[in-house]
Amino acid sequence: LKGVVVAGGVLAGAVAVASFFLRNKRR
């Protein structure tokens, strides 16, 4: 169960970083 929580956190972080980079590329 702990691994699932960690994986979810990593996935959420990756999505946040990806969206951040996409926003920067638009400018």
Score class of each variant (00 low, 15 high):
1 L>P: 06
1 L>H: 15
1 L>Y: 03
1 L>K: 13
1 L>M: 04
2 K>T: 06
2 K>M: 07
3 G>L: 14
3 G>K: 12
3 G>H: 10
4 V>D: 02
4 V>G: 04
4 V>E: 03
4 V>Q: 10
4 V>C: 09
4 V>W: 13
5 V>L: 04
6 V>C: 09
6 V>K: 12
6 V>W: 13
6 V>L: 11
6 V>Q: 08
7 A>R: 12
7 A>E: 02
7 A>H: 13
7 A>T: 11
8 G>T: 12
8 G>L: 07
8 G>D: 04
8 G>N: 10
8 G>Q: 07
9 G>S: 12
9 G>W: 03
9 G>V: 07
10 V>P: 02
10 V>C: 10
10 V>K: 05
10 V>M: 09
11 L>V: 14
11 L>R: 01
11 L>N: 00
11 L>C: 07
12 A>F: 15
12 A>V: 08
12 A>L: 04
13 G>Q: 05
13 G>N: 08
13 G>P: 01
14 A>H: 08
14 A>S: 04
14 A>V: 11
14 A>C: 15
15 V>R: 05
15 V>M: 14
15 V>C: 15
15 V>Y: 13
15 V>F: 15
15 V>A: 14
15 V>Q: 02
16 A>C: 08
16 A>K: 06
16 A>M: 04
16 A>N: 02
17 V>I: 08
17 V>E: 00
17 V>R: 04
17 V>L: 08
17 V>Y: 08
18 A>G: 03
18 A>I: 14
18 A>V: 15
18 A>D: 00
18 A>Y: 09
19 S>R: 08
19 S>K: 15
19 S>T: 10
19 S>G: 07
19 S>A: 13
20 F>L: 09
20 F>Q: 04
20 F>D: 00
21 F>K: 01
21 F>M: 00
21 F>S: 01
21 F>H: 03
22 L>I: 13
23 R>N: 09
23 R>V: 06
23 R>D: 02
23 R>A: 08
24 N>C: 15
24 N>I: 13
24 N>W: 11
24 N>A: 12
25 K>L: 15
25 K>D: 10
25 K>Y: 14
26 R>P: 15
26 R>L: 10
27 R>Y: 14
27 R>W: 07
